[in-house]
Amino acid sequence: MIVFVRFNSSHGFPVEVDSDTSIFQLKEVVAKRQGVPADQLRVIFAGKELRNDWTVQNCDLDQQSIVHIVQRPWRKGQEMNATGGDDPRNAAGGCEREPQSLTRVDLSSSVLPGDSVGLAVILHTDSRKDSPPAGSPAGRSIYNSFYVYCKGPCQRVQPGKLRVQCSTCRQATLTLTQGPSCWDDVLIPNRMSGECQSPHCPGTSAEFFFKCGAHPTSDKETSVALHLIATNSRNITCITCTDVRSPVLVFQCNSRHVICLDCFHLYCVTRLNDRQFVHDPQLGYSLPCVAGCPNSLIKELHHFRILGEEQYNRYQQYGAEECVLQMGGVLCPRPGCGAGLLPEPDQRKVTCEGGNGLGCGFAFCRECKEAYHEGECSAVFEASGTTTQAYRVDERAAEQARWEAASKETIKKTTKPCPRCHVPVEKNGGCMHMKCPQPQCRLEWCWNCGCEWNRVCMGDHWFDV
Rank of each mutant, 00 (worst) to 15 (best):
V3K: 03
V5R: 01
V5D: 04
H11N: 05
V17Q: 01
V17C: 07
I23E: 01
K27N: 01
K27M: 02
V29G: 04
V29I: 13
R42H: 09
I44A: 03
F45H: 13
L50K: 00
N52W: 01
D60H: 13
Q63K: 09
V67I: 10
P73R: 06
R75T: 13
G77I: 14
T83H: 10
G84V: 13
R89M: 14
A91C: 07
A91Q: 11
A91I: 12
E96M: 12
S101Y: 08
S101L: 10
L102P: 12
R104G: 15
S110N: 11
P113V: 08
G114E: 14
V117L: 12
V121L: 11
T125R: 10
S127C: 08
S127F: 10
K129H: 12
P132V: 12
S141M: 10
Y143K: 09
S145V: 06
P159H: 08
Q165R: 15
L174C: 05
T175H: 07
Q178C: 07
C182Y: 04
I188R: 08
P189G: 06
R191H: 07
S193H: 13
G194D: 00
C196M: 01
C201Q: 00
S205L: 11
E207V: 06
F208A: 05
F209P: 02
F210T: 03
F210N: 00
T222S: 09
L226N: 00
L228I: 03
L228H: 08
I236Q: 04
I236N: 04
I239P: 02
D243F: 10
R245P: 02
P247T: 06
V248K: 02
V250I: 13
F251V: 01
Q252H: 07
V258W: 02
I259M: 09
C260E: 00
F264W: 06
L266N: 15
V269H: 03
L272F: 02
L272G: 00
F277A: 00
Q282E: 12
Q282A: 13
S286N: 00
P288H: 05
G292A: 08
I306R: 00
G308E: 13
G308N: 06
E309I: 09
N313M: 12
Y318F: 06
G319V: 05
G319K: 07
M327C: 10
G329H: 03
G336Y: 09
C337V: 03
G338M: 05
A339K: 14
L358Y: 14
G361M: 08
G361F: 15
F364V: 03
R366Y: 07
E374M: 06
C377F: 02
A379M: 11
F381K: 07
E382C: 14
G385D: 08
Q389S: 15
Q389R: 12
Y391D: 05
V393M: 08
R396Y: 12
C418V: 01
E426C: 07
N428K: 15
N428S: 13
C436P: 01
C436V: 01
Q438R: 05
Q440D: 15
R442G: 09
C446R: 00
N448F: 08
N448S: 08
N454Q: 05
R455Y: 15
R455F: 15
R455Q: 15
V456R: 15
M458N: 15
G459T: 15
H461Y: 00
W462Q: 07
